[in-house]
Design a binder for these strands. Structure first.
Length: 137
DNA sequence: GCCAACGTTGGC
DNA sequence: GCCAACGTTGGC
C-alpha cells in the first residue's frame, strides 16, 4: 500500500465537508504530475488531508475507495479523479511550519514541490508524520 | 523549438 | 497584498 498527501483550500473544500460527505470524489485536478499520482492510487491507499493557504496543516486521514476514473467535471475527458473516504481527524494537526522545521522531512514532496496538489509520501515519512500528529493505527 | 508574456498556486 | 515557482500559451 502506498501513501499520499492531497491538498485542498478549506474555503473551497474543507476537512469538515469531507467528514460530512464521508465519501468524496476528488475532482478538479488539472496538472499532469498530480494526475499521474491520482492514477497510481490503489484501493486501500491512505492519504493525509492537507489544508493549503488557510491553516496550512495536515488535518485528517482519508482512504482511497475507488481507483482512478474519468473526472466528470472535465469536459474533455482527459483528467481523472478517485473517491476518498474520511478515516479520521489528526489528533494534533501537523503544520507546514513544523514540517519545514524538521530536518527528517526536508525532502518531502509537499515542501519541495509546493504547487503540486497530489504528492506521494514515503513509508518513513508517513510514520514520522503520524507520530507528530498523534495518529495511531 | 525557443522564449517572452501571462495565469495560477500557495506561502509569507 | 506581494512575490516566487512553475505551467501554459502563442509569436517567431
Amino acid at each position: 500500500m502506498a501513501y499520499w498527501l492531497i491538498k485542498s483550500e478549506p474555503d473551497a473544500f474543507s476537512w469538515s465537508e469531507q467528514v460530512e460527505n464521508d465519501i468524496e470524489p476528488w475532482t478538479g485536478v488539472r496538472n499532469h504530475q498530480a494526475k499521474k499520482n491520482l492514477a497510481a492510487m490503489k484501493v486501500g491507499d491512505r492519504a493525509f488531508f492537507y489544508h493549503s493557504n488557510v491553516g496550512r496543516e495536515i488535518v485528517g486521514v482519508v482512504e482511497v475507495v475507488r481507483e482512478a476514473y474519468p473526472d466528470p467535471t472535465a469536459t474533455d475527458g482527459r483528467w481523472v479523479c478517485v473517491d476518498m473516504r474520511a478515516i479520521g481527524p489528526m489528533p494534533h494537526p501537523v503544520t507546514l511550519a513544523a514540517m519545514k522545521a524538521d530536518p527528517d522531512l526536508a525532502d518531502l514532496a509537499l515542501i519541495r514541490q509546493s504547487r503540486l496538489s497530489v504528492v506521494p509520501v514515503s513509508d518513513a515519512h508517513w510514520g514520522h508524520l503520524c507520530r507528530m500528529g498523534g495518529w495511531n493505527s
